[in-house]
Design a protein around this nucleic acid. Structure first.
Length: 453
RNA sequence: GUGGGUGUGGCGUAGUUGGCUAACGCGUCGGAUUGUGGUUCCGAAGACCGUGGGUUCGAGUCCCAUCACCCACCCCA
């Protein structure tokens, strides 16, 4: 035998213990259900692709943070996000897909950056995108927040706000100030407003970007009009006519706000925020960011936007799209860190643990099958342990029921079904026990995964 | 990539101005009259104090190097 080495995983990577993994997977499953309820189809693409494909966009940061390696002659890389693979996929299969193409993709992505608290090198994103052929109706932009609203509330999160903005509106506004060439820098700086404060942002505007003081103040007071839909829209209307791009952006933003409301998202869960712009990359219209109201420090757990031409690197076809991505791993991590997720209660999928007290195992196996036929997830305890050890195991797993089969039960062809929470215990036929357990379990209200305080 | 901090059993910590067999909690395992639990009590296993070198009669405690991890910046989920 070789020498024993310390078991460990790479920094920035995570794995969960059973209780935590179960909660994570429940969150994932809910996201999938909601996504599918809006007609999105699942997609799974390779984690590894040719570097050439994944780097087609050619961006500084992406280049630096991409996990890249060679295998034989091939220059390969791990996907950095799920959007670029989608672009490739849509371009490659455009002839076989029906547009608008709605797909969701929950998968791991990889970023070789320095790990930090709540930031990982391998993490899950839960993306949805709608891709059109030639054009894509603006109502799709309004549907995105509605979907996110449903996912979050079904998880048990209600104290959040989806913030919406439009880059045409911003770009047009800066153009009207004669600052069109600085548009990208201004957006990037304004994005930090919440984090570093108005003073510093103003200083960067005037000192670093050379923007005249009056215009810097103009930008800041413009952005200060962020807020609930109607008020902000009313303000934005006062600037209509100053710039064609601005007007176009305003029209879009208005339709999105009205649409989001039509989808039933409450006013407290969304707002127009004129500071957000979402990095520099492909977004060209609507942009989204989400804030957990009680924990703004964790950043946006869900963001996205509209892009005019998703797959321009891979096809001549013009494929506009809109999408949004939940940073599932980081959000989950943050919720656990804040103590909002109980990772201890259930550490098994089993609803029933069958405990044979005699050497007979056949009756236990048969009883377990009876439970399973009733749709109850069931495990048989096969090990030779004292009763206390068996009970302990049941407790540790957090199973709601145990079914004991001792000599008496065996002779009578029955089991003793015990509700571990109430302590109540009754002897009956396995089929009856299965039905009883199934009834109790299905009557129980599903508790949300996240318990907000 | 740039700057700062930390490094003691599986986890969280204690370890006085360097001094005898490195302590504690949690967890793990075993036991407390052989079919009823998460409590309590008792007991056990488990660390060459990240690694290498140096100073010293003597270092977990000082110095250097190295590695790892953490935090901030960058960027973002």
């Amino acid at each position: 035998m070789g020498e024993i080495m310390t078991p460990r995983i790479l920094s920035g990577f995570i794995e969960l213990l059973p209780g935590a993994q179960l909660r994570f997977d429940e969150m994932r499953r809910i996201a999938e259900e909601v996504y599918e309820s809006f007609g999105f189809v699942p997609l799974d693409t390779p984690a590894i692709e040719l570097s050439e494909i994944l780097l087609a966009k050619g961006g500084g940061e992406t280049d630096k943070q991409m996990y890249r390696f060679t295998k034989g002659e091939n220059d390969l890389a791990l996907r950095f996000d799920l959007t670029v693979p989608l672009a490739r996929y849509v371009a490659q299969h455009a002839g076989e897909l029906s547009f608008p193409f709605k797909r969701y993709h929950i998968g791991k992505v990889y970023r070789g950056e320095r790990p930090q608290r709540g930031r990982f090198r391998e993490f899950y994103q839960a993306d949805i995108d709608v891709v059109g052929d030639g054009s894509l109706n603006i109502m799709n932009d309004a549907e995105m927040p509605a979907i996110i609203y449903k996912v979050f509330t079904r998880w048990g999160i209600t104290r959040f706000r989806i913030r919406i903005n439009n880059r045409k509106l911003l770009g047009g506004f800066y153009e009207s100030l004669g600052l069109g060439s600085l548009s990208a820098e201004i957006m990037r700086t304004a994005d930090k407003l919440e984090k570093i404060g108005e003073e510093k942002v103003r200083a960067i505007f005037t000192d670093d970007l050379g923007i005249p003081a009056d215009k810097a103040d103009g930008i800041l007071s413009f952005m200060a009009h962020s807020g609930t839909g109607d008020k902000t829209l009313a303000f934005l209307e006062t600037l209509r006519g100053s710039n064609a791009l601005y007007d176009e952006g305003l029209d879009e933003l208005r339709k999105v706000v009205e649409g989001v409301r039509a989808f039933g998202v409450p006013d407290e869960n969304f707002a127009v925020d004129l500071t957000i712009s979402r990095g520099l990359d492909y977004y060209t219209g609507t942009v989204y960011e989400t804030t957990l109201l009680d924990y703004p420090e964790i950043g946006s757990p869900c963001s996205g936007g509209r892009y005019d031409n998703l797959a321009s690197n891979y096809t001549e076809r013009r494929l506009p799209g809109v999408g949004i991505s939940i940073g599932l791993s980081r959000l989950y991590w943050a919720l656990c860190d804040m103590g909002l997720i109980d990772t201890e209660a259930r550490r098994s999928t089993a609803d029933v643990l069958v405990i044979p007290m005699t050497s007979d195992r056949a009756a236990a196996i048969a009883a377990a099958e009876a439970f399973r036929r009733a749709g109850v997830r069931t495990q048989v305890y096969f090990e030779e342990k004292k009763f206390k050890g068996k009970m302990n195991y049941a407790n540790r797993l957090g199973v709601p029921f145990i079914a004991i089969i001792g000599e008496d039960e065996l002779a009578a062809g029955e089991v003793s079904l015990k509700d571990m929470r109430s302590g109540e215990q009754n002897r009956m036929k396995p089929e009856e026990a299965a039905k009883l357990a199934a009834d109790v379990l299905s009557a129980e209200k599903k508790r949300p995964i996240v318990a907000e305080k």
